[in-house]
């Protein structure tokens, strides 16, 4: 991996104010779990709404959206990407460095709270399952949002539309869409790894299928992003 690009990307991400947006949601998630547990609620009662309804449905995709569009989209917006592109680097190296940063940061801000929530629920197995699911979801979402940054001028809007409309709305109405929903892959991975009575969720995709689909989505959008970056155009401003 190209460490120079990764370190500039990381500094750019942390240097921007929108990075502060990454903190409240995971903290809120963690706080809710702690509160539910402290108030004496049974884990099997509060994990479905907090972990699945909030964690996987909102916090994970929104965090990945902020990070995934932040690592590339903001450099496209402000034009600094040109400095990276005027180097004799394979475009694959640039995308992979950006993807690695997006994946690592998303996993950090979603996987760690999810892991702790698993522990609060009283199951080490659940904690591991949630961490693995957050990591897999982070990878797939990061690849998707990275590619979106190169496919549209409004990656945040399109990304939100995918998360809210496709995964959120259609996912509840049409069961078939679960095979094209990163959220469903993450929930299934968590469920199958944890196999925990503390999280009574019945995922309908098997573990190998969910993992394979997450991987396919990640690879496909990464390949697409590399190809789009090769044809990256800068429109003339004075003409």
């Amino acid at each position: 991996m190209n460490m120079t690009i990764a370190s500039i990307t990381l500094r750019g991400l942390f240097g921007r104010r929108r990075f502060l947006l990454l903190l409240p949601m995971p903290l809120m998630l963690l706080g809710l779990a702690w509160l539910a547990d402290a108030l004496g609620a049974a884990a099997e009662d509060w994990t479905p709404p907090i972990v699945v309804g909030l964690g996987f449905a909102v916090v994970l995709p929104v965090m990945a959206l902020i990070v995934g569009t932040g690592v590339l989209g903001s450099e496209i917006d402000d034009g600094t990407l040109v400095h990276v592109l005027t180097k004799p680097l394979p475009r694959r190296d640039i995308i992979l460095a950006k993807l690695a940063v997006a994946f690592a940061v998303s996993t950090l801000v979603t996987g760690v709270p999810m892991f702790l929530i698993g522990l609060i629920a009283g199951s080490g197995q659940l904690a591991l399952g949630l961490l693995a699911a957050a990591a897999a979801g982070s990878l797939a979402y990061s690849a998707l949002f990275l590619a979106l940054s190169l496919l549209t001028r409004r990656p945040v809007l399109v990304g939100l539309a995918y998360v809210l409309l496709w995964e959120g709305l259609l996912g509840n109405v049409l069961k078939g869409t679960r095979f094209l929903s990163i959220q469903q892959y993450a929930v299934s991975i968590a469920d199958h790894i944890a196999q925990s009575p503390q999280m009574p969720v019945h995922s309908s995709i098997s573990l190998p299928v969910a993992a394979a689909l997450a991987l396919v989505v990640s690879v496909a959008f990464t390949v697409l992003a590399v190809d789009r970056l090769r044809s990256f155009s800068v429109a003339g401003e004075t003409s």
Binding site: I8, R11, G15, H83, T86, P88, L89
Partner: peptide
């Protein structure tokens, strides 16, 4: 076009003064 190795021989200073301000 679509040939990154040319940048070993080419330097570009674009008009837009975008730089990583934090560096």
């Amino acid at each position: 076009w679509r040939n990154p190795p040319v940048y070993a021989k080419l330097g570009l200073v674009s008009e837009r003064e975008a730089v990583h301000g934090f560096l």
